[in-house]
Computed example of a mutant assay.
Amino acid sequence: MAAWKQILVAAVILLAAAVAWAGFFPGAPEILARWGMDWAVASTPKTEPGDGAPRQNAAVVQAMVVAAPVTSATINDRLQAIGTGRAAATVAVNPYAAGRLIEFQVTSGAHIEAGQVIARLDSDTEEIALERAKAQRDDARAKVERIRALRSSNTATAVQLTDAELELRNAELSVHDAQLALDRRSVTSPISGVVGILPIEAGNYVTSQTAIATIDDRSSILVDFWVPERFAAAVQIGSALTATPLADPRNVFEGTVTAIDNRIDDKSRTLWVQATIANPADSLRAGMSFQIGMKFSGDTYPAVSPLAVQWGSDGAFVWTVDNGKARRVPVRIIQRNTQTVLVDAPIASGDMVVTEGVQAVRDGGDVMIARGAAQPVDAPAGS
């Protein structure tokens, strides 16, 4: 076949396809109108009823559709996160000075009070230094008393008395210094809490860098967890939450947010939040993992059936039915759920949207909602 004949046949086929598309595709008139080709719709031949076919007025033909009411759903109203607990206060106890550890006065797991002695170091040298300082103090005090007696008879000068009093003051400071050195041979707890496993035994030589015990204050537990940045503005100091230990889901503890970091982590896009949980029964331990739950007011959006969402060249839309007329409403999809789609659109709860029969619907056209159509059940939106 000659080339010009092939081109002619192809052109005829394309023309026939275009005419068929303009005449039968539901959205063709709108698309052609946007392209400025309204004349193509006007020139499309209308199908006339043949012999024996019933004649109907096209203006009164109504499309039969199935519609469902718009509902509403709330998102971003719940937060679930995994957190890690730690003691309200944790102290690793180190001695002030080096020496031989001669005894522990506590055992692992014991509850102690602040200031209670944990262990003792050898203190012979410090005891001798204290006795020497006391002797020097007593001698300085006796000297001051002698000079005061001589001063009353003008035998001693005022300068001698001043020097003696200064010597006494220095001797008293030496006693205080020696007493402090002796007291520091007894290692005390700076906080109240529970003693952990003791890492060394009595008899070991320790320095100021040696941790001889770890003490946890478990009167309350701090839980560190991270929340997505979309909740950053919603989380506030004092916000209530629930904490469920993953090891024992039967117990649910209540707590409050006590600290919020001042920045979003740029790698994980999360915010560090800290909560406090009371632990009066001492059933919680540092290092436990918790399921954190929080509730917020959230954002409410219209929810429609997934069958109602249609797509055109300009994006998603739905067909609404108002007084028997169809109206094309553009929508922006917010979230897809199992039974509903949350959209941002100028529609309200109770509005009817077409779910079946959309092929026969035209913007502004007459529609009839089929009776007895099943209505979708509201489905909760995820957070």
Rank of each mutant, 00 (worst) to 15 (best):
P280V: 09
M288Y: 00
A98V: 03
A247W: 03
H111N: 08
A303W: 04
G52Q: 11
D183W: 02
Q375A: 12
A16C: 06
P199Y: 07
K46A: 09
R327W: 03
N154R: 11
D163T: 03
P302T: 14
R141G: 03
A202G: 14
L32G: 06
A18T: 10
S72E: 15
L161Q: 15
I191M: 11
N154S: 08
R120Y: 01
A259N: 11
D366S: 10
V252H: 00
I292P: 00
F317W: 05
R55L: 13
L180N: 00
R263H: 07
D217Y: 05
E48Y: 14
S289P: 05
S189P: 13
E30C: 06
A178K: 08
A373Q: 04
S220Q: 03
D163M: 10
R332T: 10
I102L: 05
P54V: 13
F25I: 15
I200A: 02
V9E: 14
Q136F: 13
T107A: 12
E145Y: 07
A81S: 09
K295W: 11
A142L: 10
V329E: 00
A42K: 15
V9K: 15
I7L: 15
A58D: 14
D163L: 02
I212P: 10
R141A: 10
P330H: 03
V341N: 14
L180Q: 00
Q179Y: 13
R148Y: 00
I31A: 05
L284H: 09
T242K: 03
I347E: 09
A97D: 09
